[in-house]
Design a protein around this nucleic acid. Structure first.
Length: 564
RNA sequence: UGGGGGAUCGUCUAAUGGUAGGACAGCGGACUCUGACUCCGCCAAUCAAGGUUCGAAUCCUUGUCCCUCAGCCA
């Protein structure tokens, strides 16, 4: 792990691991794996699993493999494989040479299946999917045996070989485990092990037309790789008896222990693959990497640092109960990290022109500004000041309410690192009444931002010199949904009805400090008093800068305004 | 309603028979050339009822509620 201040916090899984390690199980070895199916992009929920698996391996000097669970050729693509590897790496984890694919085990898996048949524990079923479902029974009624359940081992072997050879069409036959059609756990009612799929696979091409199912593949892949602790989410709890059954009934190299934990849910967010795909396909976002998306690539483009995501994963902990983590905790983690590292610059997002009437025309002051008050090593820069500047529209009110400390007619405020200025006149559009310029005077004695006479001012404003400003487009991002639980079933509404129309606001003609002219793809900073921003990795050009708002600063004033 | 799981401040999570703790959120204050940061304080929980025990979130009994499983998806 790089740049990580955190060690894995303790939880029920680390407790199990420590017990196993102390008991010298698996010769004191720890091996985990992160097993994504390459049929979509990784999201913050996967980050929790990645953090767990790699994190636990790191803290207990074990190993963590990356394994693609690619047993369904009709859903999986290389595009996803590449994206997943990029995302895991970006999150700060490394699998060294331990990159695996379940498809690499197809031959071994086939042999295991043959041995299962030879042991009389698997059979080829001629029932179709519909018939199998009807034989399965229900939650409360037992299932019925398939008429093909008692074929001879020889016939099963022959049929299975023919399945592999392509003698049968898709859906006409499957290989099933012979367990118990009356088992109270439906998963155990003769689960399907292999199905026929005459589809090319992204890695094995047309070598196979039968593909193993998850329950058969996963446990054996774990075993082949010598995994000691197989960590997965709660919905696989029902599958654990089958995981164990398969390993107990073939000559498996080892028997990993499966442990289930609760998947991550986040407020104001959806994390189901299906819904994320819909958002992309219906054009409700610009793509998988839209900065509003909870995907890893979306968060990356939004400017969320990987270390902040890791810290978040550590903070949310690990347990078995269903839970919904407040997205505010994620945002807190991002701010916490960025506060320490983001250089401070001034950027005026909604410019209001200010003319300093007693400041000489043509004159430019170079003022020293601190780059990062949290990091003295970041040093100081020069910022040009001149007669015409821009300030934030929200920093001026003609009729300020009680708690508004900023600029108003006749009021004096500080321009950060520059001078005290007093508003002397408000110039408005005659027709609309909209304020479009302010006239101020400045006090030359306050150069740098302090008054020699000790007088105080209630506000400090950020500003940019008009003549020196760099123009940019700024994209203000916010939560994608405006409802804490977008999945709440109510009055026929769906999560799509709760998409936040204000999750993206595009601002053009923003005025930035001249030092930002050279901001490249990986640049991030704090626009003082506005939030943390980063250069958009896709759309920003040197001559047309685009910034994304990563997250706002905490804003006590906004909170006050909201209350009244 | 069969099986498998789970219930601790608003949220997330600790405490494994011995003071229910932390974080986020919220509220209040201090500080401040960012209404930021930081610091301090406050608010606030063991699903319920019985039982065992000197002592129970923890052990037992009964009940309640929530999640999950009837893909040839993973």
């Amino acid at each position: 792990m790089t740049e990580n201040e955190t060690t894995m916090g303790s939880n029920f899984i680390t407790a199990i691991i420590e017990t196993d390690l102390q008991a010298n199980k698996n010769d004191g070895r720890l091996a985990t794996r992160f097993p994504p199916e390459p049929n979509g992009y990784l999201h913050i929920g996967h980050a929790k699993s990645i953090f767990l698996n790699f994190g636990v391996a790191n803290t207990y000097k074990g190993t963590c493999n990356l394994r693609f669970d690619d047993t369904n050729p009709s859903k999986e693509e290389v595009e996803y494989v590449d994206a997943i590897m990029e995302d895991v790496r970006w999150l700060g984890f490394d699998w060294d040479d331990r990159l695996h694919y379940a498809s690499d085990y197809f031959v071994k898996l086939y042999d295991f299946a043959v041995r299962l048949i030879q042991a009389g524990k698997a059979y080829v079923d001629d029932l179709n999917a519909d018939e199998i479902r009807k034989h399965r029974g229900t939650l409360t009624e037992p299932g019925k045996n398939s008429p093909w359940r008692n074929r001879s081992i020889e016939e099963n072997l022959d049929l299975f070989q023919h399945m592999r050879a392509g003698a049968f069409e898709d859906g006409t036959r499957v290989l099933r485990a012979k367990i118990d059609m009356a088992h109270p756990n439906l998963i155990m009612r003769d689960p399907t092990l292999y199905r026929i799929r005459k589809t090319s696979h992204h890695r094995t091409g047309d070598q196979w037309c039968i593909y193993p199912m998850y329950d058969f593949t996963h446990c054996l892949s774990d075993s082949i790789e010598g995994i000691t602790h197989s960590l997965c989410t709660l919905e696989f709890e029902n599958n654990r008896p089958l995981y164990d059954w398969v390993l107990d009934n073939v000559d498996a190299p080892c028997h990993p222990r499966q442990i289930e934990f609760a998947r991550l849910n986040l407020s104001y967010t959806v994390l189901s693959k299906r819904k994320l795909i819909q958002l992309v396909e219906e054009g409700r976002v610009s793509g998988w990497d839209d900065p509003r998306m909870p995907t890893i690539c979306g968060l990356r483009r939004r400017g969320y640092p990987p270390a902040a995501i890791r810290n978040f994963c550590n903070r949310i902990g690990m347990a078995k109960r269903d839970s919904v983590v407040d997205v505010a905790l994620l945002e807190y983690s991002v701010r916490e990290y960025l506060n320490k590292r983001a250089p401070r610059v001034m950027g005026v997002l909604r410019p209001l022109k200010v003319v300093i009437e007693n400041y000489p025309e043509g004159r430019v002051d170079e003022l020293a500004a601190v780059n990062n008050p949290e990091d003295p090593a970041a040093g100081v820069r020069k910022v040009p000041f001149s007669r015409e500047i821009y300030i934030e529209r929200d920093d001026f009110m003609e009729n300020p309410p009680k708690k508004f400390f900023r600029l108003g007619p006749g009021r004096e405020v500080r321009l950060r690192y520059a001078f005290f200025v007093t508003c002397t006149d408000v110039i408005k559009d005659e027709k609309t009444g909209e304020v479009h310029e302010l006239r101020c005077t400045y006090d030359p004695a306050t150069r740098g931002g302090d008054a020699p006479d000790g007088r105080k001012v209630k506000a400090t404003l950020h500003w940019v010199s008009a003549a020196h400003a760099v123009d940019a487009q700024v994209r203000l991002y916010d939560r994608l949904f405006d409802k804490a639980n977008p999945d709440e079933k109510k009055a026929g509404k769906t999560y799509k009805d709760f998409i936040n129309p204000d999750a993206l606001e595009v601002l053009c003609g923003c005025k930035l400090e001249p030092c930002l002219a050279a901001a490249g793809p990986d640049y991030f900073c704090q626009f003082e008093r506005m939030g943390y921003f980063c250069v958009d990795s896709k759309d920003s050009k040197p001559e047309a800068l685009v910034f994304n708002r990563t997250v706002t600063l905490r804003d006590a004033w906004a909170k006050l305004k909201k209350k009244s």
